[in-house]
Amino acid sequence: MTSFLTDGLIHAAFWVVVGLTFGGAVLAVFPRNIVYNVLGLIVCLSGVAGLFLYLGSFFLALMQLLIYVGAICVAIVFAIMLSPPLHLEAPKRRIPKLVLSAGAAGLFFAAIAAVSWKTAWKPAAQRGTDWSITTIGHFLLTKYSLVFEVISLVLLVAIIGAILTTGFSRRLSS
């Protein structure tokens, strides 16, 4: 009885999380006020973190919160503060562009959904059960060490590139 109750609760919570994600996503895309968008993004990313929990990875959920919500969203907020004044009224959206984009995105969604439906997904024959962070760390430093290094390099380049881009543009404009 309790397990049934717990299961139901977990089930309901799942759909709540999904709804949170969707709501956040809609909020992140539709409003013309950029601050709402960022808030929506935060909500959506938190929802995705919840989904990660359901998918069995506590670590990834934490990482999601840390990197996305903690770092990227804050960076975006900084960018907003550095860019044009918010009190100016944003121009109206044009209907044809809206329809065109909706059509294209809808078409793409249909394509992805069709692929998901049509494919007969088959689990691997032997499936490991080792979800521990230790294993992830082990893999990162052994089998995937090259990718790890490359990612580090990419980040480094991105940081230097960001500094240079903004620095040069400042010199250009002034």
Binding site: S101, L107, A111, I112, A114
Partner: peptide, 17 residues
């Protein structure tokens, strides 16, 4: 981008369906 996305989507749909 719209054209690109629509084209890619149509192509995938064409091959899947």
């Amino acid at each position: 981008l719209v054209l690109m996305v629509a084209g890619a989507g149509a192509l995938v749909l064409f091959f899947v369906l």
